[in-house]
Each structure stands twice: as structure tokens, then as C-alpha cells.
């Protein structure tokens, strides 16, 4: 497996993000993932395996292979 230049050896795993398969670094945090997606200052809510991840837990919550993640936002609606 390639060295991803993170200082230690990590593998890439597959998860499901918003209904689509996605590869993430094993053990990446929710915060890492949101940064990769480019969420920025947008108000979102995150669910990991059907449990809500609170904002203050983003940096501490690690993602593992097979995880199902939902990231939602507010959009136009009636």
C-alpha cells in the first residue's frame, strides 16, 4: 500500500457517503472528511451509522471501513 505521507502508515477504506461509495483514509475524522468535501462554513448536520455526530465531536470521531455517513444541509422547500 502506498505511503500517504501522513507520517504513519494508513490504508484506504470504502465507506458510503450520502448514498455513494467513497474512499477515505482509515481512521480519518469527520472533520477531515468535511474539509475534503469543502463544507466550509455551511450549516450541516452529520450522521454516522444512523447516529448524529455533534459538532464538537467532529475532530474526535473516526471513520472506519463500511461506515455509512450522511451530511445534510438546509435547502429550499415549503
Amino acid at each position: 500500500m502506498q505511503n500517504l505521507g501522513l507520517g504513519d502508515y494508513r490504508s484506504v477504506v470504502e465507506v458510503r457517503l450520502n448514498g455513494e461509495p467513497r474512499e477515505v483514509v482509515d481512521g480519518a475524522t469527520v472533520a477531515d472528511l468535511l474539509e475534503t468535501i469543502g463544507i466550509g462554513k455551511r450549516r450541516v448536520a452529520v450522521e454516522l451509522n444512523r447516529e448524529i455526530v455533534t459538532r464538537d465531536a467532529y475532530a474526535m470521531t473516526r471513520i472506519r471501513g463500511g461506515d455509512v455517513i450522511e451530511v445534510v444541509q438546509f435547502v429550499g422547500g415549503g
Binding site: R42, A45, V72
Partner: peptide
């Protein structure tokens, strides 16, 4: 009122509703 929907991962969009309708 607003709806709750998945962020579009492939194209999150430069603009967001709440930028135009701020809380």
C-alpha cells in the same frame, strides 16, 4: 421554511440558501 437534504458531494455548490436567507 426550508427542507433538509443531502449535500451534493460531487458539486456542493458555491452558494448556499442560508447565505441569501440568513438565520
Amino acid at each position: 421554511t426550508v427542507a433538509v437534504r443531502r449535500v451534493n458531494i460531487t458539486d456542493p455548490g458555491k452558494e448556499n440558501l442560508l447565505e441569501h436567507v440568513p438565520p
